[in-house]
């Protein structure tokens, strides 16, 4: 565990908490893509199956359980409790265009052709693109509430910090995982445009609004 990895995990945790609090406090999930949240739930469930097979550390197990639980709670709030506030019309990204390529890619490019390994690889690929329905929703409505922007910034920073963690681990431990690195780079690149808008607008107190 190095400082970049810890900062990445805390950023990830912060993102999930911000999202849950936003929905809970405003009693609304307006501006949030339910499709991205479904994809994240699939990511956690397929990656953290090793909770049942491999013990790594108490920290590792607790974080995995928290991510799965928070993801389930988010889906419950969006699709059950505050269903009426869910922005169906704008959340129109076709997730099969992400799911199917990720399944195929995981079957072709993986470290080991075993069920657990292919599910892990699938979750890594899917996570890298899972934010696309959310970014699509923001681009369709042309704006995002500040709290949604903070959520996206924390969530995007998490994988960017993991990239630093992987550079550190490569230098310090000669450890690397090309699948994770490749997907992590793709994931971070997808946020770049948003990062730019966040820094130039949201941090200056303006609303995130896309040019018409």
């Amino acid at each position: 565990m190095n400082i970049f990895r810890l900062a990445g995990d805390l950023s990830h945790l912060l993102a999930i908490i911000i999202l849950l609090l936003k929905i809970w406090k405003t009693r609304s999930c307006a501006g949030i893509s339910g499709k991205s949240q479904v994809l994240f739930a699939i990511v956690y469930l397929t990656r953290y199956l090793d909770l049942f097979t491999t013990y790594i550390s108490l920290y590792n197990s607790i974080m995995k359980i928290v991510f799965i639980a928070a993801s389930g709670a988010t889906l419950y709030l969006m699709y059950v409790k505050f269903k009426a506030t869910y922005d169906h019309n704008h959340d129109s990204f076709r997730i099969e265009f992400l799911l199917i390529p990720c399944v195929i890619l995981a079957l072709i490019i993986n470290h080991d052709f075993t069920v657990m390994e292919i599910l892990w690889t699938f979750s890594i690929y899917l996570e890298s693109v899972a934010i696309l329905p959310q970014l699509f929703l923001v681009s369709k409505t042309g704006e995002a509430e500040s709290i949604t922007s903070h959520y996206l910034f924390a969530l995007g920073s998490y994988r960017a910090l993991y990239l630093l963690n992987w550079i550190y681990r490569y230098m310090a431990e000669s450890h690397y995982d090309l699948i994770a690195i490749f997907a992590g780079v793709v994931q971070t690149i997808l946020y770049c445009d948003f990062f730019y808008l966040y820094i130039t607008k949201v941090l200056k107190g303006k609303k995130l609004q896309l040019p018409a």
Binding site: I56, N60, H111, W166, E173, H175, Y176, L178
Partner: peptide
């Protein structure tokens, strides 16, 4: 180097 270092990550 060691491949597959990411299983202890989240």
């Amino acid at each position: 180097g060691n491949e597959k270092a990411s299983k202890d990550e989240l």
